[in-house]
Simulated assay, not measured.
Amino acid sequence: MRVLDYLELSSQLHRAGIGTAHDQQVEAIERARDAGADVEVVTSPWPDGDPVEGLTNGLRGRGFLADVDVVHLNLIGPASLALARHAKRTDTPLVLHCHVTSEDFRESFRGSTTIAPALRRYLRWFYSQADLVITPSEYTKRRLEAYPVTAPIRAMSNGIDFGSVADHADYRDEYRERFNLDGVVMFAVGSVFERKGLTDFCEVAERTPYDFAWFGTVDSGPQASPTVRKWTQHPPENVTFSGWVDDKPGAFGAGDVFFFPTKEENQGIVVLEAMACGKPCVLRDIPVFREYFEDGHDCLLCETREEMVEALHRLADDPDLRERLAENARETAAEHSLERVGEELVATYEGLLS
C-alpha cells in the first residue's frame, strides 16, 4: 500500500502546528512500516518528488502524478483541491485531514474574523468530497457535523513526537540566560495570535510578579492584527516575546509552568509537548481540553483571568503540586504516542481500500 500524505505550502508551514501535525503523520506511518505494516508513504504528488519528471511522464503517457493507493491531504488550498479532484476522478480513496475550521481561523490575523463565515461555507463543500475526514478530536468532529459536512468523519489524535523535545532540559540554562528569565517562569509556545489568548496572557502577567515568556513567531507584516502589534511592541515589563527560536526544546526547557489561555483549538499539539516535558499546565477551560485532559489531575483548567492568576500563584508556591501535575501529564502524553497513531492510520487506509 502506497500513501500520498501531502501538505500544501509545507515549506511555509514548517513552523506552524499544521506542519508539526503533518510531520508526525509521516513519522507515525514510517514507524508502522518499521513494525511490519505493508505501507509506504510519499509526501510529494510528483513521481520521485520531481515535477519535471512528472511532466516528462505525462508527455509519455504514464501519468503526471505519483502512483499511489490512498491520497491523504492536510490543507485546503488550490493544490490540495486539484489533488482531491484527481483522486475522485481516478477512484483513489481520499482522506482529508481537518486542521482548519472557521472557528480556529478567527482572530489569527488581520481580517480573519471577517473571512471566517465564507471559509465555513467553503470547508463544508471541500471536506464533503472526502471518503473520510479525520479530525484531531471529537470536539472538531462535532463542529464539522454542524456545518454540516456530509462525508464520514473520524476523530484521531495528532499524537506527540517525544523525540522532538526529549533533550529540553539540556537547553534550560542557555535559554534562561538568553532571555533573562528567572524564578518560576510561566511560558507559552507557538505563533502569537489573539486566538491563542494573547491579551489574557499579557493581562494575567501584569497581575503577577513572575517572568512570562512566549516562544514563537510574531507577525510584523500587514497581516499582523492591531492586538498583536499592541502587545508585542509594548509588552508588560515581565513579558518576553522571543520570536522564532531554532531549538524548540529550548522553549520547553526554559519555562516551568505552561500557560496557554487559547480560545479555540482542534487538539493542541503544543500542550501534549509540554506534558511530555513534564511541565504543569494552566489551560483555558474549553471543550477540546476537557476531552483529553482532566482538571486537577494533569492540568489546571480556568475560565477567567482571576482563576488563571490564582492557578499560577498556586503552582509557583507549591512545588509538590507542580510535580504531581507534571507526573500525571507525562502519563497523559504517553497515551498519544506516534506508534499508536501509525497503527490507527494504517488501519484506516486498509479499511478504505477494502
Rank of each mutant, 00 (worst) to 15 (best):
V239P: 00
V239W: 00
T240K: 14
T240C: 10
F241V: 10
S242N: 02
G243N: 04
G243F: 04
W244V: 13
V245D: 01
V245S: 03
V245M: 04
D247F: 04
D247T: 12
K248S: 13
P249S: 04
P249D: 01
G250E: 05
A251Q: 08
A251R: 04
F252P: 01
F252C: 09
G253W: 05
A254F: 02
A254G: 09
G255V: 07
G255T: 07
G255K: 02
D256N: 14
D256G: 10
D256I: 11
V257C: 00
F258Y: 15
F259R: 06
P261K: 06
T262H: 06
K263M: 13
K263V: 09
K263D: 13
E264Y: 13
Q267L: 15
G268K: 13
G268M: 13
I269E: 05
V270H: 12
L272K: 09
E273H: 08
E273I: 09
A274F: 12
A274Y: 12
A274G: 14
M275S: 11
A276L: 06
A276G: 15
A276H: 04
C277M: 07
K279Y: 09
P280L: 06
P280W: 11
P280Q: 08
P280I: 10
C281W: 03
C281A: 15
V282T: 09
V282D: 01
L283F: 08
L283V: 03
R284P: 05
D285K: 10
D285A: 11
D285M: 00
D285L: 01
I286G: 09
I286M: 10
I286T: 08
Y292F: 15
E294G: 11
E294C: 13
D295I: 07
H297R: 15
D298R: 05
L300W: 04
C302M: 13
C302K: 12
